[in-house]
Design a protein around this nucleic acid. Structure first.
Lengths: 339, 339
DNA sequence: TCGATTTGCCAAAACGTTTTGAGTAGGAAG
DNA sequence: CTTCCTACTCAAAACGTTTTGGCAAATCGA
């Protein structure tokens, strides 16, 4: 299997110079129609395809964007958040000339290789970042880096940094207020990892919703499941054992809601009769379990897709929106009822 | 934000030549200890990181492997096959110097850009291919291409081509024979897309299992759901309406089994009392629905991980296994019972 | 007719590496 | 005093593109 044809090969074959061949193939106007078709034909005949690497070296554009994700792990098949955003990114990139490389990182790894290095090494044209923790070094770096980037679910803007998120705050408040309207007063909150921006904002929403509906905040009702089912189960078990007055649970993720439901089951607490539960994410499972989970739907696919689009705008220097907010929606199902 | 430092910068700074700097940084032995440390220090001080693109151009190694997947689409959040293999690939690649770019293709796209071009353009060091149809052009190309590749679930070998698969045939037979042992005789088979290799092999297994247990093949009992829930539902509906003697369904995927179960429900047919159902894949959902689905488990994560490992062996010229077969397992749950 | 413009083409430099082949200096061996 | 190693260093070429500046011929304007 021989090597792929180069510009030089075409030049030799047609008798023109490398320069002319290059310009012909790139649609410049200073090459006559005749030579252009001749060159194009031999290019086709030889199966020529430009060497993106060589091109990148001189143009400084790799036509590659990085999809940086923290802890790409198989456990997240339950919520498919990362996978769906990836699909969104992939789909919109498919109609462009860009391709994307998946870069899985972690807080530990970020100490070995700086964000700058990651971008520079492969001369990434742009970056989509998802799942970063608030205090991750990459966050500050990304903010005032030279290479365009768009953050998912972390509302930070910079010279070349944009973000896409959703109306987390409002929708979370809406969920809590819904519980209040159903007559619940002792509403527990299962928070996710403290290091995630979404956790902070959802928690704040929970607090504000209670305040606005005239309920005093009880710190004991706020527990943490770190976005994990098992941890949530244990935390819920502990809380429900000690506080029989809790009649509703708002969870920062569906996966944790699963843990809460499991805990309730173990204690013989019936959902929704004895305990109402609301999740967050609208994962696939949420409408298959019994009782079906009331939850807040997000649109990860659309987020990925919007992120990619915005990134390309950024890369190509068009100015436009620097922030996008998608709409979440409260989906009422069977896990909630009147007090 | 200034550009990243280059070898030239370090050379200027230290007074050595670019050659020496390069060799020092790459650990050659013909550079004295003194200069090496001096060079290393300034490299660190300037935040030097090699430009992989430039390096690739001369070494012909991009340190990038391609993950070619057909029709990366959000629908597959139900079976997470593709996502899990991706995690497997990502995890084993994480401990190497390779990175991977996701290349989503389709039968249509394969007409525009040949496999060779895809590999050559980005000078991919190797490729993992998943989800290819049997008659896809890429298959033949990959088989005798120069760039190493590992196919997932398509047992084809080549000079530089290897594959990883599972004991599909045996495990499918085992499932059908299990139904036979439970006394079922009229066993329907819901096949997946004809173009998928796994469909063909699972169908053959179904036929052979019946033959070996002395049941005459009834072509009318073989229907096709194209790996889609809705199509499977319709096909099952049609079959179950006309053939009340069918007492069991073996499905080439869990997602299609979901469709079958839905059809049964619509017809008032109870599972497993009136109809036994076995799926394939052991998707997350399969143990959450009621009744819990009896199915065959696969190990997509391990497949991806094994594929990546084998690919690197191939790339680096070590010879070793060219084919890997993982073990599937029949998982008995609640959707099957005696006739 | 002559100068000016346009058209079509090209040589050479550049991008940041690695690799090759050769060179220098110093010491050891004869 | 040569000759030969050894240890270290480097200039130059190469990888496959794009870009710059310019050159020759053809066309145009007067």
């Amino acid at each position: 299997m021989k090597e792929l044809a180069t510009l030089k090969d075409i030049a030799r074959e047609t008798g023109f110079s490398v320069t002319t061949v290059s310009r012909a193939l790139n649609g410049y106007f200073d090459v006559s129609e005749g030579t252009r078709t001749k060159i194009e034909q031999t290019a086709k005949r030889l199966g020529y395809s430009p060497n993106i690497i060589a091109r990148s070296l001189v143009t400084k554009q790799s036509k590659t964007i990085g999809f940086i994700v923290t802890d790409l792990k198989r456990e997240s098949i339950k919520d498919n958040f990362m996978y769906e955003t990836l699909c969104g990114v992939s789909d919109t990139l498919a109609s462009t000339t860009y391709e994307f490389v998946v870069l899985s990182t972690s807080t530990a790894k970020q100490k070995n290789k700086t964000y700058r290095q990651i971008c520079a090494e492969r001369q990434l044209d742009g970056v989509v970042i998802q799942g970063l923790k608030i205090e991750d070094p990459y966050l500050i770096e990304a903010m005032d880096s030279d290479t365009p980037c768009v953050l998912i679910d972390i509302p930070i803007e910079g010279e070349k940094a944009a973000y896409v998120t959703s109306n987390q705050f409002e929708s979370a408040k809406q969920a809590v207020k819904y519980l209040r309207r159903m007559g619940h007063e002792k509403i527990a909150y299962m928070n996710g990892s403290e290091h995630a921006h979404v956790s902070q904002i959802r928690k704040k929403a929970y607090e504000e919703a209670l305040r606005e509906t005239g309920v005093e905040l009880d710190p004991a009702l706020v527990v943490n499941g770190d976005f994990e089912e098992e941890m949530a189960r244990r935390a819920a078990l502990h809380l429900l054992l000690n506080r029989s007055d809790v009649s509703a649970f708002f969870c920062a993720s569906d996966v944790m809601a699963l843990g809460v439901m499991q805990a309730a089951k173990e204690l013989g607490i019936q959902i929704p009769k004895d305990l109402s539960v609301i999740g967050f994410d609208n994962i696939l499972l949420s409408r298959y379990i019994t009782p079906k989970l009331t939850t807040i739907s997000q649109q990860p696919y659309e987020m990925g897709s919007a992120a990619a689009e915005m990134l390309i705008q950024l890369i190509e220097g068009h100015d436009g929106e620097r922030q996008i907010e998608l709409k979440n929606e409260l989906i009422l199902r069977e896990s909630t009822s009147n007090r």
